[in-house]
């Protein structure tokens, strides 16, 4: 077992396959017993330089349930940041007030930089379009929990595969587990070649589709993402493709019984509400799993697991 004490989690590639599994095992323990005062002598700083509902509340809930005190801000307005303080100075100062920093910042690479400045570990809670590794960890947790394994699965990634950072990170992480990838997106939003190269480098296969119906019968996991109108320069083009990545309950006939639908949320219309009551919907439990995974990460990084 690796010692994760003092480690940063900035990018999903910072942890090895065995380290992901180690964190997932710890998260399982917290799922059984989430309220344990093991961090009662710790202060966790949550620095959110842009608004976030789920991620921030999930981190704060995770830390609070383990007894840690939480300090920080959910919006830089009214803080020294708004007065023009550099990230360097903010992080240096907060390092002296806390045992762990959780940071979200719209500037890409800001968390890596913060981890180089901070004297305490840093967990990246999203740096712009770059990385959001704890989302990826909770996706892995949800996949393992619903399938009983991470190995040898058929995973369908659906929607905006070009800009969706969760898709990129999850693809990179699942390359460790002999996954077969089924990539469903409009032509304009296909997975970038740099991510496809990671799949090829891992010796794995991917198949590309433009219609979600083509993967329903094959997939163990359908990972849905939102196709945003603003990604299309031509509104007519959006109108043409917008329904090709929408999942409805009637489409689920013929899916595998073990198949589960994940979504990083927020959902808009890409999963119709009639799917929610099917046994295949897992996206709300997935969000709940975020608390256990974040508890596991904080406990491991702070050296109490």
């Amino acid at each position: 077992m690796s010692n994760l004490k003092g480690r940063n989690l900035i990018s999903i590639t910072d942890f090895s396959r065995d380290e992901y599994i180690q964190v997932l095992d710890i998260a399982e323990e917290f799922e059984k017993n989430p309220k344990q005062p093991i961090l009662s002598d710790k202060v966790v700083a949550t620095l959110f330089f842009e608004p976030s509902t789920r991620t921030r509340l999930s981190f704060e809930s995770a830390a609070s349930q383990l007894g840690a005190r939480v300090i920080g801000f959910s919006d830089p307005g009214g803080t020294s940041v708004q007065k023009g303080e550099s990230l360097h100075d903010t992080i240096t100062m907060v390092s002296s007030y806390s045992d762990l920093i959780v940071m979200r910042n719209p500037k890409e690479g800001s968390s890596r930089y913060a981890s180089e400045v901070a004297s305490v570990p840093v967990i990246n809670a999203g740096d712009g379009a770059n990385q959001h590794p704890t989302q990826c960890m909770l996706d892995l947790y949800s996949i393992r929990k619903t399938q009983g394994t991470l190995d040898n699965l058929n995973i369908a990634m659906v929607g905006d595969l070009k800009y969706g950072r969760t898709v990129h990170s999850l693809t990179q992480a699942m390359c460790n587990f002999n996954t077969t990838f089924h990539l469903v997106s409009p032509e304009e939003l296909k997975l970038p070649s740099s991510v496809k190269i990671s799949i090829k480098d891992a010796g794995l296969k991917y198949y590309q589709y433009t219609d979600l119906k083509d993967v329903i019968g094959t997939a163990d996991i359908i990972y849905m993402t939102r196709v945003q109108r603003e990604r299309f320069p031509d509104p007519l083009e959006y109108e043409r493709v917008k329904d090709s990545c929408i999942l409805t309950a009637s489409m689920l006939e013929g899916c595998k019984p073990n198949m589960r639908i994940l979504h990083p949320l927020p959902r808009v219309n890409e999963i119709t509400v009639d799917v929610d009551s099917t046994p295949y919907a897992y996206y709300f439990q997935q969000a709940q799993n975020g608390v256990y995974v974040r508890q596991a990460l904080m406990a491991a990084i702070l050296g109490v697991r």
Binding site: S11, S86, L87, H88, K107, E108, G109, S110, R112, Y113, D127, G128, N130, Q131
Partner: peptide
């Protein structure tokens, strides 16, 4: 921010560099 840039050269023949920070 006033930070020195850092890159890893991932393809020397075609000169492709990956940013240590934003990974682009």
């Amino acid at each position: 921010e006033k930070i020195p840039t850092r890159f890893d050269v991932v393809d020397k023949d075609n000169l492709k560099l990956r940013c240590h920070y934003c990974e682009k």
